[in-house]
Simulated assay, not measured.
Amino acid sequence: MMKVLRDLFFVGIIILLTVAKVSAQVDYNELLSEKEYNPIRTAVPFLMIAPDSRSAGMGDAGVATTPDEASIYWNPAKLSFIENDFGMSLSYTPWLRFLVDDINLAHLTGHYRLDENQVIAAGLRYFSLGDIQFTDNQGTAIKTFNPNEFALSGTYSRRLGEEFSMAMSARYIHSNLTGSTDENTHPGNAFAFDLGLFYTRDIDVSGKEAKMNYGLNFSNIGTKMDYSENTKNFLPMNMRLGGAFMFQLDDYNSLGIALDFNKLLAPTTTYQRDTTGNFITAEDRTDLAVATAIVESFYDAPGVSGMSTFEEEMKEINTSIGIEYWYDKKLAFRAGYFYEPREKGNRKYFTMGAGLRLNVFGIDVAYLIPTTANNPLKNTIRFSLLFNFDAMAAPNE
């Protein structure tokens, strides 16, 4: 059995290293030309930062992994299949520590099982951008302000059969970036919802127990973020699709692998050309209706850098792959890789992580390793604490 575990481990490492070898050849100087670099721009990008340490340790893969407290972010439909009836988690991420030391993301979640088929959950995500000194046009200091954003979510998840579940989440988003220092701006507010689907099936592999999961989640589908009378921006509306395979090696050892595909559903920036074919102006197309923007997001890429529309649309899909090993359901080791094409942001990084589960408490840690030098995501570390209140009640029953 140890030989099987060793072989599976090396297969996972080879996959990760092969992907990284291709991506490591990127020269950041090439991204300075707008013909080469055309990311999708949205408001409140903090909503797309992986909040928990478990999925962050697996290359940001989580739409179809086994259910946990962070499912409210990755795919709320997974909550119907969560093992414990009542639990909470708290995650903390010091963000962009390579550049500054006072930006951070906190994520608090909790769930409660109503009955065998129904689960409700809530989550609060808070993003602090640190203290910023505001000045007037002459450079005179006005005040120091801490820009911040938060999102408050509520979820209802229901199992519709032995193997299938659905969920809906509602979300209120608040973004205060200027503290009304500029009389022409104000804090932004928006409302959004998520729709999640989850399918899980037990299978037999060579006489061993295994499980195959599939997940689909549409998130942050909602109103535009308004910071002024003349400026409205789309939320990071997103579609995440993926699968996960978990294999029970023996009574104590299990191994899982997860694969996610992720696509923003906001409009792609388009460009106009002059008579020589050069790109001269950008158009964000923020006047589109939300439903129209979602539909057109699948075919609106202008085809920069000599690409066809289809080629650029394919570049807008990010890929996450991760592996997770558990010993006796108590000790976990994780690794993963996240890939984003250079034309759409060029985020490429390895991740690794570990987890420990005790009777009532659990802890996860994840660490991010970029494949390029001087990357602002360098040295990103995440911490998560988990609480299983079922275990607290068990001795009294």
Rank of each mutant, 00 (worst) to 15 (best):
F150E: 03
T223L: 02
L249A: 13
G243C: 07
S206A: 14
G196A: 11
E183P: 15
N230R: 14
T140L: 06
S169Q: 09
S157A: 11
L255H: 12
G161M: 11
N230C: 00
F150D: 12
N184T: 10
S254Q: 12
K232Y: 01
M166Q: 00
Q248L: 08
N213I: 01
G242I: 02
S219Y: 01
A258P: 12
F145T: 14
M212Y: 02
K224C: 09
S228N: 09
A170K: 05
R159Q: 15
P236V: 01
T144Y: 04
M237Q: 10
L160Q: 13
H186A: 13
S165V: 03
F193Q: 09
E209V: 04
N238I: 01
L152K: 12
G215A: 06
L249Q: 12
M166N: 08
A190V: 08
E209P: 07
L177M: 15
N184C: 05
G243R: 05
N189Y: 08
A244D: 11
R158L: 12
M168I: 15
F245T: 06
A210D: 06
F193N: 10
F245W: 07
I173H: 08
H186C: 09
Y172Q: 01
G154E: 06
E162I: 05
F150W: 15
N189K: 10
N189F: 04
S180H: 12
E229P: 08
P187H: 03
F247L: 15
A190S: 13
F193Y: 08
G196C: 08
G242Q: 06
T231E: 00
N176H: 05
L160C: 10
Y252L: 15
E163Y: 02
R159L: 12
G179V: 03
S228C: 09
A151V: 02
N146H: 06
A258C: 13
K224A: 03
G188T: 08
N189L: 05
M212T: 08
D202S: 14
G139V: 00
T155K: 14
G243P: 09
T231N: 03
N238F: 03
I173K: 00
G222P: 07
A192H: 08
E229V: 02
D251S: 15
A190K: 04
D226T: 12
Y214T: 07
G161V: 05
Q248A: 12
T144A: 01
T223S: 13
D182S: 14
K211V: 05
M246Q: 15
G196H: 09
K143Q: 10
M212D: 10
N176F: 02
F164M: 10
L235N: 09
Y199R: 14
S153C: 02
S169M: 03
N217A: 14
Q248W: 02
G139L: 00
R171D: 03
